[in-house]
Structure formats: structure tokens, C-alpha cells
Simulated scan of single mutants.
Amino acid sequence: MNETVANGALLLAVPVALIGGLVSFFSPCVLPLVPGYLSYVTGTSGSDLAQARRGRVALGAALFVAGFSAVFVSGGLLFGGFGSRLQEHQDVITRVLGALTIVLGLSFMGSLRILDRVLQREVRWHWKPAMGLAGAPMLGVLFGIGWVPCTGPTLAAVNTLAYTEASAGRGALLTAVYCLGLGVPFIVTAVAFRRALGMFAFIKKHYVWVMRIGGGMLVTVGVLLVTGAWDGIVNDLQVWSADFTVGI
């Protein structure tokens, strides 16, 4: 029974985590910097990036993604573990975290200017890892730790869902899915750099919709958590998943 409940919750939370990662990638403070990151992790100048070997660029991007994934998944483990230890207070804490998610979603949409100023203060590091493949994982770690203005709102929502799962393993799974949404576009861009630049130009023209859709998603998740509707949807998915059978 508990496993079915977990499956129902994950059926709802996994797509949210994946979309959260994609929204983070296409946000105005990540997307414009992607060519610079790829140039740094491959040791290739920006002008030569399109002519660089695809294998090297893809490997550098993958190592970079592995670096920030280690940071984010560790956070998912932590939040999921907290959820399992604080189950008797989980309802109240979930509602508080849901309210915070609403605030972060409004900020992501640009509706809370005061909070925007706070979130836009990134952590600055005086030490930089070496350029090239050897430094790529560490650059990913620094990205995961210091680039809060871009990943903070969406990642906070995913960590809230990780907490509600009340399991370190499921919390890690959700943040891993978030990293998939954030990291796969990095690798795809590395492999198809020229074509990706054309898509970037289109996204930049529609940044306002990226922020509105992403912020709206966060607000919706926050409202569902605050009102308790999240649990109702999870229970419906529990019943559906319990009755669902695959015909052979």
C-alpha cells in the first residue's frame, strides 16, 4: 500500500521536477551563459566552439552536468531524509514550504521586485577551476553551489516535493530528474552547437513567457501544497495506479 502511495506521488512530482529543470536552463540568467560554460569546460575559445570535436565538447558538458548534479542530488537526499524524520509535523511544514514556493514563483515571474534583488545576489568565488575537461566537474559544483538566482526558485520547489516524499531515496530521485531537465539541454547544445544557437535566439525573444510559465508552475505547485490538494491528487493517482494493468 505504501509503495502504491509513493508511486502516485512520484507520478505527479517527477514531471514537475523535469519541467523545473528545463525552465531553469531556459531562464535569462542561464541560457545566455551556456556558450561560455561550454567554452570553459572544453578549453576552447567561443569562436572555435562550433568547429571543436563533438566528442570533446559533449564530454566536457557531461562532466559539468555531473558536477552540479552531485550538489543538487545531495540536497534531495537531505530534504527527503528530513521528511522521513519529521513525519508527525509534515503537514504543517509542507504548507509552509508550499507558501514559500508560491512566493518564489511570483518572484520568478518578476512580480516581487524586492525579493528579486535578494535572489539576484549570487555567491562569487575568487577561485576558479582549471579550464578544460579536468576542471569541468568542479565548475559544475561551483555552479550548483553559487548560481542560486537561476536555480533557486525551481530547485526549492523540487526540494519541497522531495521533503513531502519523506524518503531520502525518492528525494534524490526527484532532484536527479531535475538535473536531467537542466543537464540534457547542456549536452544537446554541445553536440549540436550551431543549430542550438538558432533556437536560443527564438527563446531569447520569448523570455517573458518562459518566466511566466515557469513561475506559474511554481505558484500552482505551491497552492496545491498549501491547500492540501496535492495529497488529494496523489490519492487519485494511487487508485489509478493500483487499478492499472498492462495488457500483454
Rank of each mutant, 00 (worst) to 15 (best):
L180Y: 05
W240G: 06
N159M: 13
M199C: 07
P185C: 11
W127M: 00
K205V: 03
V221S: 09
P153W: 05
A166H: 09
H89A: 14
T151V: 12
G140M: 13
D231R: 11
A242F: 06
I145A: 10
A99T: 13
S24G: 03
L133G: 07
G132S: 08
F68L: 05
W209V: 08
F202Y: 14
L218Q: 04
T44M: 10
D243N: 15
V221W: 02
V177N: 06
V103K: 03
M138F: 15
G21C: 03
L112D: 02
G181P: 08
W240V: 00
T44A: 02
A168Q: 01
V23Q: 13
R170F: 11
S69N: 00
G169T: 10
H126A: 12
G132Q: 08
D91Q: 13
Y40W: 11
L63D: 04
W125F: 15
S45T: 14
A6K: 05
G144D: 04
A136L: 02
G80F: 12
A61M: 02
A99R: 00
G55Q: 01
V158K: 07
F82P: 06
V96R: 10
R117Y: 13
Y40I: 05
R56D: 15
S47I: 10
R212N: 14
L225Q: 14
I213A: 13
A166I: 03
G75I: 04
G43F: 05
W127I: 08
A176T: 09
A62W: 03
G132T: 08
H206M: 06
G55V: 04
T94H: 00
L142T: 03
G215E: 07
D243W: 12
A168M: 03
G105S: 06
L106E: 01
G83P: 02
D231W: 10
T227C: 08
L18D: 03
L86T: 09
M199D: 01
V148E: 02
G8C: 07
L115D: 07
G169N: 09
A157P: 10
L38K: 05
V246H: 11
L63K: 07
R212M: 12
R212T: 15
L173W: 07
V188G: 14
V103L: 15
I213V: 15
I213T: 14
T164L: 05
